[in-house]
Write a protein that binds this DNA or RNA. Sequence first.
DNA 1: GAGCGTCTGTTCGCTAACGAACATAGACGG
DNA 2: CCGTCTATGTTCGTTAGCGAACAGACGCTC
Lengths: 250, 250
Amino acid sequence: MKPQLNHLLEALPSDVQDRIFHSLELIALPLGQVLYESGDTMRHVYFPADCIISLLYVMENGASAEISMVGNEGIVGVSLFMGGLSTPSRAIVQSAGSAYRMKSHLLKDEFNRHGDMMLLLLRYTQSLITQMAQTAVCNRHHSIDQQLCRWLLLSLDRLNDSKLTMTQEQIANMLGVRREGVTEAAGKLQRKGVINYNRGHITVLDRPKLEALSCECYSVVKRETDRLLPHMAGNSLHGIEALKPGHLVS
Amino acid sequence: MKPQLNHLLEALPSDVQDRIFHSLELIALPLGQVLYESGDTMRHVYFPADCIISLLYVMENGASAEISMVGNEGIVGVSLFMGGLSTPSRAIVQSAGSAYRMKSHLLKDEFNRHGDMMLLLLRYTQSLITQMAQTAVCNRHHSIDQQLCRWLLLSLDRLNDSKLTMTQEQIANMLGVRREGVTEAAGKLQRKGVINYNRGHITVLDRPKLEALSCECYSVVKRETDRLLPHMAGNSLHGIEALKPGHLVS
DNA sequence: GAGCGTCTGTTCGCTAACGAACATAGACGG
DNA sequence: CCGTCTATGTTCGTTAGCGAACAGACGCTC
């Protein structure tokens, strides 16, 4: 199966694609792999193809919470070009798949041309900021039920499938709540016929209903992302067919 | 009283300062003034001098929560140069004072030189991201008591004074909690001799104790900000004495 | 097909925070 | 000096979510 491409890479004009083409390695990312630990210096950045990476903050007592989710609409490692070389967040593979990996200094070089790549990355970072801010508000004001819906929708948008592989325990870690809380919330959704849950395999049966049950946070983030990165919707490929990875690393 | 300068402006090399000098207007910002409403196109950016601006998200039902706080270490309006021309957040004056205002297109011109101003603004944005992310986690896991301490400390750092003018109602809006919750938390702090609260006037009596009672979120954000913007600590003035506003607008 | 580990479901008491209602008490203007 | 407004304090019942403990149930391995 050919992996999906990354929308940020697709959106670049072909001269930029040609330039960075050979710097990309397609790598497989198994569930749970940690790309960065809090405070790590970033040696690579990652353009997810068909995986999802979660950015989460881990507290001293081990409690955690996801602050944003990156799929093939984005890049993991924004703090590299923002000027810090690390962040206090952990990046972990939430849904297994593949990603294009690029060495930090090569991305920085491209960024420092101050061309299309820079503009695109900054816009993407802006959409990431929106996602984090909305997460903060959502954590404050919305119920687990609502947040689960939001989270499922964000995940769905980053896959091209209505099925996701994810235990309730894992979801609980992302949302920063108890596993039992997720069990209850998922149970309600299942009884309403919105989803089907089976030992780590969730199938979304009724997406419109899921959207109706979600808090507004999902749509706010979605609308803002579409506004900032309109090309993502069109899915246009300018000569991106040439974009194949230099080599495959397991 | 001469207003404090803005640390971002101070940190710029003198040639940049000379170039943007005449574009800055010193303006007075009364408590509660809204600089941007959610979704507004930004006509100006603001470099706070001795005021504090809160960025908050307001939900459909009117509930709100602060996602970050900007004082003279920063700038209000980062989404301008990030590529969006607006954000879904509201910027409101949390503590009255003055700020340097600059027309959006002039800042963008300077940013587009891709020089020191750009680097500085991106680094500052990175520190803002940390603040938002930590706020998200804090909203999830910490008690009102702890969050109040964090909030007071962040405010203190942005003033040069141990007194702040702020009713419990206002704090509650920032934290996104009930006013009664703040009353209780503030009452505890007062009984412990950490603060003194008097009809909208808070005096911090024992900052070390306040830090001890706060959650780790304050120190994480502070450490990361110091790391990203070390010049802020040194308070170095490179020829910034020349930086006087073009004219004062009430 | 037996056994074990993991995932899901359910229960119980507990606490933090909520919403509403009301009491006091400074501050400030007339 | 009085009345009024606003800020703060306090109470009460309710609820969402927590922590702990345990029961079933599916799926994989041997």
